Lab assay of single mutants.
Amino acid sequence: NDEAKKEAEKLWKNNKSEDEIKERLERAGISPDEAEQWLQELR
């Protein structure tokens, strides 16, 4: 999970869309709710 979150953070810094980041997190096995929460922390 931490690995996926690091990846999400990297994508965020590269200005990827939130949808793309969420999709990537969900593919890594993170629930949509958790993915949404993680994005809010990044904002």
Rank of each mutant, 00 (worst) to 15 (best):
D19W: 10
E3F: 10
Q37M: 10
K10W: 12
E34G: 02
E26P: 00
E36G: 02
K13Q: 14
W38G: 02
G29F: 01
R24I: 15
L25Q: 00
Q40D: 11
K5W: 15
E3L: 11
A28H: 10
E9L: 08
K22G: 00
L39W: 04
L42A: 04
L25C: 03
A4P: 04
D33A: 12
R27L: 13
E41S: 07
E20I: 06
Q40I: 07
K13V: 10
E41D: 09
K6E: 07
L25N: 02
E23T: 09
L39A: 01
K16M: 14
N1T: 13
L42I: 08
A8W: 05
A28E: 05
S17K: 07
I30S: 02
W12R: 13
Q37Y: 04
E18N: 05
N14Q: 15
D2V: 12
G29D: 04
E23K: 08
K16N: 10
E18A: 11
R27T: 07
N14P: 13
W38S: 03
E36P: 02
K10V: 09
L25D: 02
I21P: 01
W12K: 13
W38Q: 00
A8G: 02
W12H: 15
I30W: 07
K16L: 14
P32A: 11
Q37L: 10
S17C: 13
L42Q: 03
D33G: 08
W38P: 00
R27V: 07
D19G: 10
D19V: 10
A8N: 03
L25A: 03
L42M: 08
E7L: 15
E41N: 09
E18V: 11
W38H: 03
N1P: 13
E23S: 10
I21K: 01
S31H: 09
E20F: 11
Q40A: 12
L11R: 03
S31W: 03
E3A: 12
A35G: 02
Q37N: 07
W38A: 02
E20T: 03
P32S: 11
A4S: 06
N1H: 14
E23N: 07
W12I: 14
D19R: 11
A35T: 06
N14K: 08
A28L: 15
D19I: 09
L42N: 01
R43I: 12
L25T: 01
E7I: 12
A35C: 04
D2E: 12
E20N: 03
P32T: 09
N15P: 01
I30P: 00
K16S: 12
A35M: 08
E36M: 05
R43H: 06
K16W: 14
D33Q: 13
E9I: 07
E23Y: 00
Q40H: 11
D19N: 10
G29H: 02
E23W: 00
E23V: 09
S17T: 10
N15I: 03
E18Y: 12
R24A: 14
R43S: 05
D19Q: 13
S31P: 12
N1Q: 14
E34Y: 04
K22T: 02
K22H: 03
E20H: 03
R24C: 15
I21L: 02
L39E: 02
N15E: 06
Q37A: 12
A35L: 11
E7M: 15
A8V: 06
E26V: 14
L42F: 13
K6S: 06
L11I: 05
A35D: 01
E7Q: 06
D2H: 12
A28K: 06
G29A: 01
W12Y: 13
P32M: 08
A8E: 01
N14T: 12
D33E: 13
N14R: 01
K22I: 10
E9F: 05
K10E: 14
K5L: 07
N14L: 10
R43Q: 06
A4M: 12
L11W: 13
E26Q: 12
A28N: 05
E36R: 02
L42H: 03
E7T: 07
A28M: 15
A8F: 08
E41P: 00
R27Y: 06
E20C: 13
E41A: 09
E36N: 06
L39T: 00
E41Y: 08
K10Q: 12
W38K: 02
E34P: 02
E23A: 11
N14G: 11
L39V: 06
L25F: 01
D19A: 13
R27E: 07
E26W: 05
E26S: 12
A4V: 10
N14V: 03
K6Y: 05
A8Q: 00
K16V: 15
Q40F: 01
A4H: 05
D33V: 11
K10D: 15
R24W: 15
